[in-house]
Nucleic acid binder design. Structure first.
Lengths: 105, 105
DNA sequence: TGGCTATTTGGCAATAATACCAAATTAGGA
DNA sequence: TCCTAATTTGGTATTATTGCCAAATAGCCA
């Protein structure tokens, strides 16, 4: 793989990597309904607020989320809602795997 | 986030995590054209064959790839081609980011 | 059987990701 | 201005991922 190709896939991997964490998937799923502030998400997730803030920053940095400031609050929202399409395929992969698991038993 | 919800997103994250690496994205991209053996992929990637084998195993384990044995060779192929849809959205995210980057300059 | 090829597995060192706490930053209201 | 609330940043210990080498495994063929 030449350097240019590697850089191409590196950039793509960065975006996918930003989604490769249960908390961050949860966040994306929640934001499907609309923007939410850090405090709302933190309460739902139940982790330290600094942890949630860092997860949000990773998603924003990858270009998946954008943010709107209102007073002291930061409202995060999906920047590219096509991300939600991922879930459908992931669901299909899971179903396939479960099906096979059943067949073995 | 209750335990059940966490497990739900953990399972989904595992699948996305399997794609969150440049080499593994490259593999998925190559297999879009059809099955390939470990040796072919290894030559294209230019890493140690054991490294490539482990990447393939991660993808297979996640339910993204399936494998067919033919003699001493193992042919890997996409199990759930909907994975390829990811690329479209990733491309869109990249384009958005680049556009903004241009606007700043 | 013995040798050869393709692939996987085990071990391990280097690097990256994660989560918490504490401290810094920012904005609003008394 | 001072206090408080919301959020981000810095620091750090813990855990996970990665890639190579060496060794093991599996299948073909002489």
């Amino acid at each position: 793989m030449d350097e240019k190709t590697h850089a191409r896939f590196e950039a793509r991997a960065k975006i996918i990597k930003s989604l490769a964490h249960p908390t961050r998937l949860f966040i994306v799923n929640e934001l499907a309904e609309g923007e939410k502030c850090v405090c709302e998400l933190t309460e739902m997730i139940g982790a330290d607020i600094s942890t949630v803030s860092k997860h949000l920053s990773i998603l924003k940095n990858a270009g998946v989320l954008k943010v709107r400031k209102d007073g002291t609050q930061m409202f995060y929202q999906l920047k590219t809602p096509c991300i939600l399409n991922f879930f459908q395929c992931v669901e299909r992969v899971l179903k396939e795997t479960q099906k096979e698991h059943m067949e073995i038993l």
